[in-house]
Amino acid sequence: MNALDYFHARLEATVSPMDYLRLAQAEPEKYFLIDVRNGPEHVRSVTIKDAAIIPQQELHERLHEIPKDKEIIVYCWDVWCNTAVKVAAFLLERGYKVKELSGGIAAWKEMNFPVTDSSLDVEPSDTCGC
């Protein structure tokens, strides 16, 4: 593969946070965003607003939750995380149309785009440990 083919393939397989936000605002019914990060829930409490939360380790059991008629956008932690790439390959092998959100949740938060923080939903009395 030469450099030009590589960059065309990369553009076909990924979407930037800015482009995804613009596309999803224009045609929200066309996309299905999935947070595929693994790890404890308290570490994953901040998610992209309106993302479905289906950790990679639960994907096999929850595949029925992912619509085949939408473009699937998957994301994980950051550029160093390959969980979203693994999920994208898994879904592509099963006939889904999939792209990875470049930079994951880290890039999204860096841009100050909308997030949901589930840790804010916890009642103070639930966290006292007494």
Rank of each mutant, 00 (worst) to 15 (best):
I53Y: 10
N38H: 05
E110H: 11
D19H: 05
D126I: 06
R44Q: 12
G103A: 05
A26Q: 15
E123S: 14
H8V: 15
K30N: 14
A51L: 03
P114Y: 10
A13L: 12
F90R: 02
I48L: 06
L59A: 05
V98F: 01
A107Q: 05
L33M: 07
R44N: 14
D19N: 09
W108I: 02
V85R: 06
V46H: 03
E100R: 04
Q56H: 10
S45V: 05
M1R: 07
T127I: 11
R62V: 05
L4T: 14
E27Y: 11
G103H: 01
T83Y: 02
R94Y: 11
T14C: 08
V122Y: 14
T116C: 07
I53R: 05
L4N: 11
K70Y: 06
Y75I: 01
A84T: 07
H64S: 12
C76T: 05
D69W: 07
F32C: 01
L91N: 00
T47H: 07
S45M: 08
T14V: 07
D69V: 08
T127S: 12
I72K: 00
K86C: 07
I54F: 02
V87A: 03
V79S: 15
Q56C: 07
F7S: 08
V46D: 03
T116G: 08
W80H: 13
I53W: 04
E12C: 11
T47W: 02
V15E: 00
H64P: 03
Y6A: 15
F32S: 00
V122L: 12
S125F: 14
A84W: 00
A89R: 10
A84M: 04
H42D: 12
K97L: 14
E41F: 09
A52T: 06
C81R: 03
D126V: 09
Y96K: 02
A106D: 10
C130P: 08
P55R: 02
I105L: 13
E100L: 03
D78S: 15
K70L: 06
D117R: 06
A9Q: 13
F7A: 08
Q57G: 09
S102G: 07
I34R: 00
M1H: 13
A106V: 11
A3Q: 10
W77G: 04
S125I: 12
A88L: 04
T127H: 13
A26V: 06
K70W: 04
Y20I: 02
A3K: 10
W77Y: 14
W80G: 13
A89E: 12
E100W: 01
E61M: 13
D35S: 04
E123C: 11
T47Y: 02
Q57Y: 13
L21E: 03
V98R: 00
H42K: 12
C130Y: 10
N82D: 15
H8M: 14
V36R: 00
T83E: 09
S16C: 07
Q56Y: 09
L59K: 02
L4P: 03
G129I: 06
T116W: 03
A107T: 06
H8N: 13
H60Y: 12
D35V: 01
Y75V: 01
P55G: 04
I73M: 04
Q56R: 14
F113R: 02
Y20P: 00
E12Q: 15
D19G: 04
R10I: 11
I72E: 00
I105M: 04
C128L: 15
Q57E: 15
I66R: 01
T47S: 15
